[in-house]
Design a protein around this nucleic acid. Structure first.
Lengths: 199, 199, 199, 199
DNA sequence: AATGAATGAGCGTTCATTCAT
DNA sequence: CATGAATGAACGCTCATTCAT
C-alpha cells in the first residue's frame, strides 16, 4: 500500500548514482527541518548536498517528488511499527513502541509536518501519511483490546494526538519535558495501566 | 490629517477604514486556513475581501504584518481563557474551558499553525503564542492543584498536546471524532476525574 | 517666452487657495531638494505641506505639473537676471550678477537638476531651462564684448560651466570653497580682468 | 561547485558567465545614459542585453549593485588618470589629460551623474567618486605647482567644475562647443598658460 | 553522471492618481 | 476647499525548472 505513490526516474542507478540520490534526499530532509517544506529552496538543498541544480533534477522530477520519496520512507517505517505493535506473537512492550514512534518522528518530522500543513498538492502523498497513522492507531486499539482496556475512537484519537504532538515538541525544544521516555510512561499509565481512564 | 501610506497599524481609522481593515483580516484568516500561511497569496486575500492590492498595503505593511495582527488577536483570546481557567472566584467547569479552547482554535487555527511552522520571522510575534500557551498550561496546572490531583510538568504537557492536536484534527475533518465535547469529556475523566491517571 | 508652459488649474484662487498652493509648491521644492525629483513622493510633499493627496491634485494636475510651475518661477528669475546683466544702462557689477546667480540656484537647484537629469518627459519644461541659461550666456557674452574682452562660444561655455557647477557644489557642501563670493572673484579675474585668458 | 544564486559578484565565472555579465553591465550603462539611473528599468536593461530578468539577478544583486560595479570601474579609470597626471616622470601634456578626462566621462557619465544625484544609498560607493575626483584635483594642483603657477583651492575647484560640466554638456549635445579639444585649450591657456589668471 | 548558465512566470510591494464624502 | 480611502498598473525580485556542454 505504500507503493501507491510513484516516484520519478525509475531508471536503474549504479553505486555512484545511488549515493548522489541519497545525499540529495538527506540534504532535503535537513533543509525541510530547518525551514519547512514550503520555505525550503531547491538551491539550499543542492548546496547542502554539494551538488548542482541539474543534478537534482536528474534524480527527482521536482521538489514535491523529493518529498514524495521521503514520504514513502517515512510511511514504510510507520507501517513497520504498526505491524510490530499489532503483532500478537512478539508483543513488544508499549514503552518500546512509543520510543520507536519518537525515533521515526525525529527523523521524518519535517515530512510529517508537510503532510499536516497540507503543503503538498499531491493527494497520493498525503494519503500515505493518513493511512500510516490510521494503521498505528488501529494497532494501539488492538493492543488495548488485547489488554482488556475499554476504549473508543476518541480514546485512541487522544493517544495519537499525545504521541504526535509530544514527538513534535520534543524535536523543537529538547530541553523541556515531552521526550520519548516520559511520554512512554504517561501512555503506559494513562492508557494501559490499572488506573487508566476509561471512556 | 494626512498620515497616509506606510504606518498602517497606527493610523487613526474612521468607520469605513476600520471596516475595510476587518474585511481584509477576515479574508486573510480564511485564505490562511485554505492554503496555509506560506502558500497564501496576497492576491487571494484581496480578491476575497473585494479590495485591491493597494488597499491591502494601506492597512498592513505586508503579509507577515497581517499574520502578526491576527496573532495578537489570537493571543489575547487565549490569555483571556487562561484568566478564566485560573480564576478561583467564578470557577468555570472544565468542559466549558475545553470547549472554549476549541472555539478559539477553530477561528485562529491557521495563525497557530503558522506559529508552529515558525513562519513568522518576527521573534516577538512568536513569543506571544508561546507565552499564551504557557499561561493556559499554568492555569490548568493550578486547577489540577486546586482539585487535589497530583500532576507534574509532563502531565500538563500531555494535556496541552491533547487539546491542541484534537482541536487541529477537529478543524481538518469535522466528521471524525475529536470534537470539543468528546475531548472535554476525556479531559474531565482522564485528568480531573476520580480514575484519572497519576504520574 | 516663459509662458510657453501652461500649468494646471487656471481657475482663480482666493486667498486661502493661494496659500495652500504656495505651501504645496514650497514643500515640493524642499522634497525635490532632499530626494531629487524622481525619488520624491507625492506623499512626502503633501505630508510636508500638511495637506492631503486630494488637495495636491486640486492645485496641480500631477507631479510633473508641480515641477513645471517651479520651473516657470525659476526661469523667470533667471530671465530677470539675464536682463540685469545685459542692461547697458544700470550696468551691475559682475560680482553682484554672479552672487545673484548663486542665490537663484540656491532656491531652485532641485528644479535645475531635474532639467539636467532630463528627468521630465515634458519637452516644454526642459526648454524653459535651456532658453533661460542661453540668455544668461548671451548676456555675459554681451558684457564681455562691452568690456572689449575677446571671447568665443567656448569661453562663454566654460563660464557657464563654472557658474553652474560651483553653485551646485556650494549647495551640496557649504563648508568647502566654491561659494558665491569666491567664484565671483574668479570670474572677475579670469574672464573680465586684465590678466584674463583669451581664446 | 554550485555556488549558484545570491552571491552574484563573488562567484567564480567561466568565460560564458563573464561575457553575459559584461553584456548586462554595458546594457546598464547605455540605459542609465538614456533614462538616468532612477528612471532606468531593469526590464530595459535585460531587453537590451538580450537576457532575462533571472539572468540579471544571477550577476547583480539588484539595480544598485550594478551601478556600484560600474562605479568601481569608473573610479578605477579616474584613479589611473590621476596617477598619470601626477606622475612626474612621464609628464603627459595637459591636453591629453583633459581629453582623457572627457573620454572616461563619455563612457561613465551616467554613473557620475548618479553619484551627483545621490542616487546610491551605499555610502561606500559614493565615497569612491568623491575620492577619485579629489585625487584628480590634487593631481592638477600638483601640476600647477610644478609649473610655478600660483593657485589656491578655489582655482582648482573652478578647473574641476569646468572639466566636469563641459564633459557633461559634450555628452548631451555633441554639436555644440565644449568638446574635449576646445576645453583642453581653455585649460591650457586659462590655468597653465602665460596669461592665465592668478588668484 | 554532472554542471553552470539561463529562463520566465509569478509574487510582493509601491505610488501616482482618482473617488466619494 | 479639503479630506481619507481606494485603485491598479508597473516595478523589483525570486526561484523552480530547463538547457547546453
Amino acid at each position: 500500500m505504500v507503493e501507491a505513490y510513484k516516484p520519478a526516474q525509475q531508471r536503474a542507478l549504479r553505486a555512484q548514482g545511488r549515493r548522489t540520490r541519497a545525499r540529495l534526499a538527506n540534504a532535503g530532509l535537513a533543509v525541510f527541518a530547518d525551514r519547512g517544506y514550503h520555505a525550503a529552496r531547491v538551491d539550499d538543498i543542492v548546496r547542502r548536498a554539494r551538488a548542482s541544480h541539474g543534478t537534482f533534477y536528474l534524480y527527482f522530477t521536482n521538489k514535491e517528488d523529493l518529498l514524495g520519496a521521503l514520504a514513502i520512507e517515512c510511511a514504510q517505517a510507520y507501517e513497520a511499527l504498526a505491524a510490530t505493535i499489532a503483532d500478537a506473537e512478539s508483543v513488544a512492550p508499549i514503552d518500546e513502541c512509543v520510543e520507536q514512534f519518537f525515533a521515526i518522528y525525529a527523523r521524518y518530522g519535517p515530512v510529517i509536518r508537510a503532510w499536516m500543513e497540507n503543503a503538498v498538492a499531491d493527494r497520493e502523498i498525503n494519503r500515505l501519511g493518513v493511512v500510516a497513522f490510521r494503521h498505528i492507531a488501529a494497532a494501539f486499539a488492538g493492543r488495548l483490546r488485547a489488554e482488556g482496556r475499554p476504549h473508543d475512537a476518541a480514546t485512541v484519537g487522544s493517544l495519537m494526538a499525545l504521541l504526535e504532538r509530544s514527538a513534535y515538541y520534543a524535536g523543537r525544544d529538547p530541553t523541556r519535558p515531552g521526550d520519548a521516555r516520559t511520554v512512554a510512561r504517561i501512555v503506559q499509565n494513562g492508557y494501559f495501566g490499572a488506573g487508566a481512564f476509561t471512556p
